[in-house]
Simulated scan of single mutants.
Amino acid sequence: MNIEVPAGYDTSRGWQLSGKQLGTHAVLPHAGAIATMTSAGSAYRVTLRDAATGRVPWTGKPFEELSESEAPGLVVVPVGGKDCLVTWSRGDKGGDALSKAKQVYAVDTYAADSSGDTVAPEHHVEVPATDHGTGRVTGAGAISASSCAVRGRSP
């Protein structure tokens, strides 16, 4: 089956994700990029792609999920005219036969202008939670410029 492409459509441009590349995604409007989070077993990793070309300027260092029942989240927070990419997960951490595990939210922030194959988060924070309930981390609210450093400087 052949599909007719409208006149003027340049088929040499554009890109798409498929198979293992698909996952949770977020748009970084100031950076002109798309972030995707994909999994391989219990490890997750973020990949940033240029929205126009699909070129990958960076891929995050793999990290383990905190909960087997819920995948980590991905959200973009604008800070000072730039984008801050934030991943979050929630679950139990620690604990053993003698002590109960603690419920936490783990939040990592990445600068959109990073580069490399195993980019570590600029900041990692674990916040205690008394009850996970149905809450989710969102882009609402304030984030300080120092929480999302851009190449070692505040945005």
Rank of each mutant, 00 (worst) to 15 (best):
T36H: 10
E65R: 15
V107W: 08
A31N: 11
A140T: 11
Q21K: 08
V27Y: 12
R90W: 06
S99L: 07
A31L: 09
Q103R: 09
A33E: 03
E122Q: 13
L98E: 08
T130A: 08
G152C: 12
D131A: 04
T11R: 15
L74T: 02
S89I: 01
L17G: 07
I34E: 06
L28Q: 13
S42D: 13
V77D: 06
S69H: 05
A43V: 02
E122W: 04
D113Q: 11
H25M: 14
G19S: 12
R136K: 14
D50V: 08
F63H: 04
F63K: 07
R151G: 09
K100T: 10
T47H: 01
D10L: 09
M1H: 07
R153V: 14
A106N: 09
C148R: 05
K100R: 08
R90M: 14
T24R: 15
L22W: 01
G81D: 08
G133L: 01
A40F: 06
P128F: 00
S99C: 00
V137C: 04
K20V: 15
L48G: 03
A145S: 15
P6C: 06
E4I: 14
Y9A: 15
A26Q: 05
L22Q: 15
D50T: 05
E126M: 09
G152Y: 07
G80K: 11
D92L: 07
V75E: 06
V86P: 12
V5N: 12
V125C: 07
T118A: 15
G152L: 11
H123N: 12
A52P: 03
M37S: 01
T11Y: 09
Q103G: 05
V119D: 00
L85V: 15
P128L: 03
G8P: 08
A97M: 10
V86L: 10
P6D: 10
V86S: 10
V46D: 07
L85S: 09
G19K: 09
A97W: 06
A140M: 04
S12Y: 01
A52S: 13
A140D: 13
W58M: 01
G141N: 11
A7L: 14
P128Y: 03
S154T: 11
P155W: 03
S115G: 13
G8N: 03
G81M: 07
C148N: 06
E64W: 05
V127Y: 11
A120Q: 06
L66D: 01
T109E: 09
M1Q: 11
I143Y: 01
L48N: 03
V5E: 07
